[in-house]
């Protein structure tokens, strides 16, 4: 059963169309990766799904319910979460406050959940009172993930979570992604690091110029020389 269904979505900014009739699906419990060159529209797609950019046409369905253009505040209540590419932490708030913001819509005591997140990411637990802006790149990404996990999302959208991280950190992050998935979180991720994405995901879409150019499982995609040359050569 597909958890997320994107059907013929057209979207963009101002009068500039970025996504041209794009369709994809994410199944329950899958890790789906979107690869492709810069400017392809991958981030725009995540933003469109998450209600940051309203779709011009087409529909987006989550667990059977139409969420096209629904604002983020509602999606968060429905079990979706989104980790943007840059600007994904509140630099002037403390680490703990960042996590608190992640559970903003909850009125009850969120401290148990905060502690759970800290157990997941012990490195940032030590720095809970520090300003998030002072953290290193790796820890910021962990905090960004932590914030998104505060509400136990069922579907997680991640935009280039590995950007700017050293290789061993990238491995660590993707380990976590796998762990989350094992616990039942469905993940749709955008990546520039093609090898890592192919390694981790169950299915892959290649997006370029706002259009779907290819899809399939990682082995098939990697084996296709044409695709590999065109889209995976640079990473």
């Amino acid at each position: 059963m597909s958890v997320l269904q994107v059907d013929n979505v057209v979207s963009g900014y101002g009068s500039m169309e970025v996504l041209h009739d794009l369709s994809l699906a994410v199944g329950q419990g899958e890790i789906v990766a979107m690869l492709g060159p810069n400017g392809a529209g991958k981030t725009t797609l995540l933003r469109t799904i998450f209600g940051v950019v309203p779709p011009w046409s087409g529909t987006i369905t989550y667990k059977g319910e139409d969420i096209s253009g629904v604002p983020p505040e509602r999606l968060v209540r429905m079990g979706l979460a989104y980790i943007p590419q840059e600007y994904n932490i509140f630099a002037s708030l403390t680490v703990q406050e960042n996590l608190e913001m992640g559970a903003f819509i909850r009125d009850d005591d969120i401290h148990p959940r905060i502690e759970e997140i800290f157990e997941l990411f012990p490195d940032i637990a030590e720095r809970r009172k520090s300003r998030a802006g002072e953290l290193s790149g790796g820890m910021r990404q962990m905090l960004a993930i932590g914030r998104a996990l505060m509400l136990n999302p069922e579907l997680l959208l991640m935009d280039e979570i590995s950007t700017g991280l050293a290789p061993f950190l990238v491995d660590a992050i993707f380990e976590r992604v796998k762990e989350l998935n094992d616990q039942g979180v469905t993940i749709l991720l955008v990546e520039q690091n093609a090898p890592k994405a192919l390694q981790t995901s169950d299915r892959v879409y290649i997006i370029e110029g706002g259009e779907k150019k290819a899809e399939g499982n990682p082995e098939a995609i990697a084996a296709d020389e044409e695709i590999a040359r065109l889209y995976l050569g640079r990473s």
Partner: peptide, 16 residues
């Protein structure tokens, strides 16, 4: 002119 400004504003934070 709205178009140019809108494009630029979004471009600052979007790659793709």
């Amino acid at each position: 002119p709205a178009r140019k400004v809108t494009y630029r504003r979004y471009r600052q934070r979007v790659e793709g």
